[in-house]
Simulated scan of single mutants.
Amino acid sequence: MIKEWATVISWQKGEALLSCDVKASCSSCASRAGCGSRILNKLGPQTNHTLSVACDTPLVAGQKVELGIAEGSLIGSALLVYMSPLVGLFVVSALFQALFGTNLAAICGALIGGVGGFLIAREFSLKFSRRETWQPVILSVALPPNALRVETTTSADSQ
């Protein structure tokens, strides 16, 4: 199970609207100064992802929840999204190269195959997204933001 914390935006009728922060791929690595991935993460937009998850427990805006998704569904969706355009690109490119014998035909076949693979991935991902095993679930719920209050006193207040 892959876990991530999210913040509740709203909860209505058993449906929680959650916001997940996008985290950089590396933030605690020892080689931060010379890391190309860290620089690329700084250049990109820092966005939040909003998703809707079924939840019977009433939630309060600002409350933290721990989400979980099965590894198998995450790996399956990654394979679908990345591999189908790639396979389409190579297969149709090779087919056009064999049929027409020119590099231009191979390039056109690669474009057609890549776009076709993307469209196939999009169609299958819509079907797979309806599966219950591919949906994130709420694993645990933190205290509401106003449930715990800590008071501190200074020495001047206690005299």
Results as ranks from 00 to 15, higher is better:
R131M: 14
C108I: 15
V92W: 02
A61C: 00
L95D: 01
L111G: 04
I112G: 03
A121V: 15
L111Q: 06
A61V: 04
Y82N: 13
P58V: 14
G68Y: 14
G113K: 02
I107P: 00
L86T: 07
G113T: 10
L80D: 07
K64H: 12
L111A: 07
A98D: 06
S125L: 13
L59K: 10
G62Q: 06
G109P: 11
L59H: 03
S77V: 03
A70V: 13
F90C: 07
V92P: 02
C108K: 04
A105N: 04
F124L: 11
E123R: 05
S77H: 05
S93W: 02
F90P: 00
F96M: 13
Y82M: 13
E66G: 12
T57G: 04
K127L: 13
L74Q: 04
A98H: 14
M83D: 05
G76I: 02
F124N: 04
C108V: 15
L119H: 05
F90L: 14
L74I: 10
D56W: 02
A110R: 05
E71V: 12
I112W: 09
I107F: 15
K64N: 03
F128I: 08
I75Y: 12
A110N: 02
I69P: 07
Y82H: 01
G109E: 06
G113W: 07
S73G: 13
V81S: 08
G88P: 05
T102D: 08
G68V: 15
R131V: 00
L80E: 01
M83R: 06
I69Q: 13
Y82R: 09
M83K: 01
V115Q: 00
G113D: 03
L126V: 10
V65H: 09
L79C: 14
G109M: 12
L74E: 03
V65R: 11
G68F: 14
K64S: 08
A98M: 12
I107Q: 09
I75L: 15
L119E: 06
A106Q: 12
G62C: 10
G114P: 03
L67R: 05
K64W: 08
R122N: 14
Q97I: 06
L119R: 09
M83V: 09
A121H: 12
F100Q: 03
F124D: 04
V81W: 00
G113A: 07
P85G: 09
L99G: 00
N103R: 01
R130T: 15
E123W: 15
V87N: 01
G88T: 01
M83I: 14
A61E: 11
I120H: 10
L111M: 04
F100W: 14
L89I: 02
R130C: 13
L99D: 08
G101Y: 03
V115N: 05
G88D: 06
G72W: 09
M83F: 05
E71S: 12
I120D: 02
L104R: 08
L80C: 11
A110L: 07
L126E: 14
A121I: 04
G88E: 01
G114V: 01
S129I: 08
S93L: 02
S84E: 03
A105R: 01
I75Q: 00
Y82S: 05
V60N: 10
Q97M: 14
A94Q: 13
G62M: 05
L99C: 11
G62F: 05
L126I: 07
G101C: 06
L119S: 08
F128K: 11
Q63T: 02
G72M: 07
K127R: 15
A98K: 08
P85A: 07
L126F: 04
L79Y: 07
Q63C: 11
